Simulated assay, not measured.
Amino acid sequence: MLTYNEKIAIIESFTELQRKDVSLGRHNYHFEESVIDKKLVVYHLHPNGNGFVYAELINDDYVIDNKGMVNIRDFSEQEIRKVIKQSIESLSEQEPFEETWVNSENQTLKVINDFDSWNVYAGEMLDGSYATYNGAADYLQQEGFRRI
């Protein structure tokens, strides 16, 4: 596991991030150039090595919590660099987020990020609205859909 100081050095090598000190010796890092309301990239980096990176908009196999964060406690330098880069890119995208899901009967639904809501559409009809991407994805998986 990387030390706290090693993680700080990696994170601070991303000059587009701004450090914000929070309670208990923890630090957050914000991406002020974000094209959406979300600006937090690194959340609660703690001297014990624990910390989180915003990964909700990343199309990768990260295990994320209900806030869209992935724990980087045991990440290598390369893994931390990769997830931070992906997080910044996901907050920089000008195009609206849209993802297609399909079930075994070849029916398709779309997940679209609309003004901080994650909406599921069947054609032009709204099927459901969720506060997080995970909420929408969980619903689709429970209904037998998979990402394509």
Score class of each variant (00 low, 15 high):
1 M>V: 12
49 G>R: 08
90 S>T: 09
145 F>E: 00
31 F>K: 03
55 A>S: 08
141 Q>W: 10
13 S>V: 08
34 S>K: 02
142 Q>C: 09
139 Y>C: 01
143 E>V: 05
112 I>F: 07
21 D>A: 15
136 A>T: 01
47 P>V: 01
82 K>D: 13
13 S>I: 11
71 N>M: 10
91 L>K: 02
67 K>I: 12
126 L>R: 01
140 L>S: 00
7 K>H: 04
146 R>A: 15
109 L>K: 13
47 P>K: 02
2 L>R: 00
85 K>D: 13
119 N>R: 01
81 R>S: 06
63 V>S: 15
20 K>A: 08
139 Y>V: 00
66 N>G: 05
130 Y>V: 02
16 E>S: 15
50 N>T: 11
54 Y>C: 01
38 K>N: 11
1 M>Y: 09
136 A>N: 03
122 A>C: 08
6 E>A: 03
39 K>H: 13
112 I>P: 05
17 L>N: 09
47 P>R: 07
92 S>T: 06
99 E>I: 12
51 G>A: 10
148 I>T: 14
88 I>H: 03
19 R>T: 12
118 W>H: 10
106 N>I: 08
58 I>W: 02
52 F>M: 11
106 N>Y: 10
2 L>S: 01
30 H>K: 10
87 S>T: 03
136 A>V: 03
126 L>A: 02
57 L>E: 12
125 M>W: 00
65 D>V: 07
143 E>C: 07
59 N>F: 09
49 G>Q: 04
124 E>V: 10
126 L>Y: 05
6 E>I: 00
86 Q>D: 13
54 Y>H: 11
59 N>L: 07
70 V>Y: 03
58 I>A: 10
56 E>M: 08
127 D>Y: 15
104 S>I: 11
6 E>K: 04
119 N>L: 09
47 P>C: 06
119 N>H: 02
22 V>L: 09
91 L>F: 08
27 H>I: 08
91 L>C: 03
97 F>N: 05
39 K>F: 06
61 D>S: 14
140 L>V: 06
104 S>C: 08
137 A>H: 10
59 N>I: 06
114 D>V: 12
86 Q>C: 11
109 L>I: 07
116 D>R: 15
122 A>P: 02
91 L>P: 09
13 S>P: 05
76 S>H: 03
124 E>M: 09
14 F>P: 11
61 D>F: 03
127 D>G: 00
15 T>W: 07
118 W>Y: 14
62 Y>E: 06
57 L>D: 12
9 A>C: 05
29 Y>Q: 10
12 E>R: 02
79 E>M: 06
35 V>E: 07
96 P>H: 11
130 Y>F: 13
44 H>L: 14
53 V>E: 06
112 I>Y: 01
49 G>W: 00
123 G>C: 03
7 K>L: 06
62 Y>A: 04
86 Q>H: 11
143 E>K: 11
7 K>N: 01
74 D>R: 13
127 D>F: 13
92 S>W: 06
85 K>S: 13
57 L>K: 14
96 P>K: 15
105 E>N: 14
43 Y>Q: 11
48 N>M: 12
29 Y>P: 04
74 D>Y: 14
94 Q>W: 04
48 N>G: 09
18 Q>M: 06
90 S>I: 00
21 D>W: 05
